[in-house]
Amino acid sequence: MIAFKGVSYSYLPGSTILDDVSLLIGDGELVAILGENGAGKTTLVKHINGLLKPSKGTVLINGKDTRESTVASTAKSVGLVFQNPDHQLFAETVEKELSFALTNFGFSPEESQERVNWAMREFSLEGYRERPPFMLSGGERKRLALASVLCYGPSIVILDEPTTGQDSGQKDRLATLLKKLNGEGKTVIIVTHDMEFVADFIPRTVLLSGGRVLADGATAEILARKELLDRASLVPPQLIDVCWSLGVQPSLQLDEVARNVERLVGGERH
């Protein structure tokens, strides 16, 4: 359970990045955090693993105040994957990169090996075990960064912009994996600009703008509200856009949209 209670945060006095944010995310939820550039998305998620402590208010992770525990102890249950993989890859080989967090958290060598193998399979990195991470392509580095956090099995997984630089095949694999992790009871939080990715499979959306929670609720409802998206400088998913243009009830389900369009033209489905 993640609980933000009236959280405000500012780097410098006078410049507020988060402004009185209150938010509850239950165990096993799948949530997207959307918002314009500079809305405070990354600052918000850095509060979840305790990298940042609120200037005002409290953040509770499974009932524990993040102020009272170290980042390392919070990080064991909160896995945060940063936006740019180049900010974390450092080891000589892909294998060593994957085992870095495992060693830090004190996993036994056997278990580490097992988890490394799992991560390589899951993220299609099998051929690269002995390669230096820096020699991988951009997309592969991104996957390695994801794998290096997911391999230690945190119960809360946060991904900051996981889809940038990934082709649609890799995005689909990522979506499948996230759904699987979520199915196993993990809380999954995704910070993104990729509306199609969110629309496809994430039930709940938190919309941030200017450091405040603008809306929090069902993705299908929020993404269909033009005034909200405009305020957060977001472009709706194509399906919603089509519905708006045709003047039919917006929906993220293709079937439903098709039925609505049929009703509009009054014809039969061929």
């Binding site: 990298l51 390392a72 990080a75 945060l80 900010h87 974390q88 870095f100 830090n104 230690y152």
Partner: peptide, 13 residues
């Protein structure tokens, strides 16, 4: 600073 945050998130103390 960002890199330090990223590594702390992977349990580096």
């Amino acid at each position: 600073q960002i890199i330090m945050d990223a590594q702390k998130s992977r349990g580096l103390e």
